[in-house]
Write a protein that binds this DNA or RNA. Sequence first.
DNA 1: TGTTAGCACTCATTGACGTTGAGTGCTAAC
DNA 2: GTTAGCACTCAACGTCAATGAGTGCTAACA
Lengths: 350, 350
Amino acid sequence: MELDERKVKILQAIINNYLETGEPVGSRTISKYTDMGISSATIRNEMADLEELGLIVQPHTSSGRVPSDKGYRIYVDRLMKESKMDDPVFKEDLLTKVDKIDTLLQNIIKKLANNTNYATVVSTPQYQQTKLKHIKLIKLSEVKLVAVIVIEGDIVKNHIINITEEIDEERVEKINNLLNLNLTGLSLVDINLALIQSLKEQVGIYPDLLNSVLDAICETIQSSDEIQLYTSGATNILKYPDFSDIDKAVDILYTLEEKNILQELLLTTDTQYSKDIKIRIGNENSVEAMQECSVLTATYKLGDGLVGTIGIIGPKRMNYEKAVVNLKQAMFQMNEIFNNQLQITIKDNK
Amino acid sequence: MELDERKVKILQAIINNYLETGEPVGSRTISKYTDMGISSATIRNEMADLEELGLIVQPHTSSGRVPSDKGYRIYVDRLMKESKMDDPVFKEDLLTKVDKIDTLLQNIIKKLANNTNYATVVSTPQYQQTKLKHIKLIKLSEVKLVAVIVIEGDIVKNHIINITEEIDEERVEKINNLLNLNLTGLSLVDINLALIQSLKEQVGIYPDLLNSVLDAICETIQSSDEIQLYTSGATNILKYPDFSDIDKAVDILYTLEEKNILQELLLTTDTQYSKDIKIRIGNENSVEAMQECSVLTATYKLGDGLVGTIGIIGPKRMNYEKAVVNLKQAMFQMNEIFNNQLQITIKDNK
DNA sequence: TGTTAGCACTCATTGACGTTGAGTGCTAAC
DNA sequence: GTTAGCACTCAACGTCAATGAGTGCTAACA
């Protein structure tokens, strides 16, 4: 049996109606509220076919039909209207005070959650491809240093280093020069143990001290591609009758709280930058607790290879059009901000 | 009417029973399961008195009694057993890797939430009284500097400064010396606009540049006493039948998500360091959504005047003994870690 | 005077039962 | 291929009686 045009029309009518009311939709409703000019009996026949195709299901005999995951998939891929992004959803003022990138990300997803009434999530960007801009050791006391590491996008990391032997300002300065000479401009993946080893051998001075310093830098670099996840609007989940079963709601909220599970959920697909929005519906999600949800993700870009993810999580019976438009809006504006930011940085580097 | 010893005993029995079962407790239960040797009828009389005193309430006529907020208060103040802190609740390994204080705090409340099955919250310490240990400007490019600010407890903050005129390394070094000479050792409240003004006048060199730098430092300092709040185990709230009314649960979870409301809830009492645990029960809480909850808070200390708050949030029908013991444990161990940390720091400074 | 047994009363909870109504699948006629 | 008609299903709802845990009150007792 094939999915002819009339069946598609009926499927669309079912999904539209279900998205609106949340009630299983019956044949009579469709025949009445669409202008297809066919009777409910005919629609019943077609619905039986659609069910056989796996696109709709009956919660129980003698109830109306509800879209299946597969049905939603067809809706999302082929039937959904792409609304235009006319009105800027985000107020500028939220986005201009970029003193700290994490705060900015949190503000954005909070706004996104408020606008959509779904839960939202964002990951900090991954730094692996980013170039190191500057390293500086600062002497705090005789046996304590701070390593300040600046990477592309002007993100600053620091790490306390406890050293075993005393060191004077002059030596610190020498090491600073050495490090900057050898390491700046490299991407973080290039600064691997091998390179550091050769650096250790290459210069014979203060081997022990250099050891601790380099180890600490290594550690900092490794720890800096730990992704942070922030969520917002988690309580929105409880607003939807789809999750009136508390246990389901708890599973979902728990997943939102446990960042490692959440990360698994977000990053199952490739983390390549893409202009498209990815939608995973129900059992398309890898995490079991989320198989009653739909997850929309987009990527944002903060310089070369510096990619993060932003997403919306809601019930499968979600207003996909609204969610998509809001997410695109967010992605678009984030890229705009970060690109402006980057342009300044690049200009500065000349 | 006064609260004689027998009434207290009955109150205790009611509360113990209610904490255990969650069901309103009747006179017959009390007479059976205590060794007071009085009949249910007598207990009924006493219960009527306790009700008149406002210590217990009936959810409806012909049901058993439930403790009122006032009843819990007496329980907490006078009747509750102080269990000893025998077993160390926190694994050492969680607490040793202190590379970043925020991560440490998050680990602690996560553990605390797991141990107690309640929601937990922690505030980052307030820095107002802390002494500045070190300031260093690092030149990133011709028009961009990073200000690295180290305060007591080896907490490092940084701030990007965009400057209008170019500057060479030598000048940066001079400003560094100037800043350290004049500002280190002062507490953050001492570094006010007045002092900075006088500093600006005192030294005539590069006034414009110094302006931007000092402004940025000022801003950093001001922003560094913004309190961050972290929560954990929020979903635990949904486990308790006390919040089976979804709307109540939503209110509570929402409060946990909205950090500014949460802060109001935590910090209504003085933020002075204290060895005691504060307990606020039901309507003793300032935030309306939380008047079905009990909130336990403790303070931890990270150096002179560097005080933060850690707390447990659960239903009024909470296992107070367990919560108190866990919170004390957490407070104790945090203070231990931070004190060790501090001792090293202080030793280093000599 | 405090304690207790007894009794009538209250009220949330539970389960059985019938009604309703929205919906279906199937069949036969168009 | 479409449709009208019909028997059937089943969740949802309201009613009703039974149950039982609990109370307050009264009168008798020590």
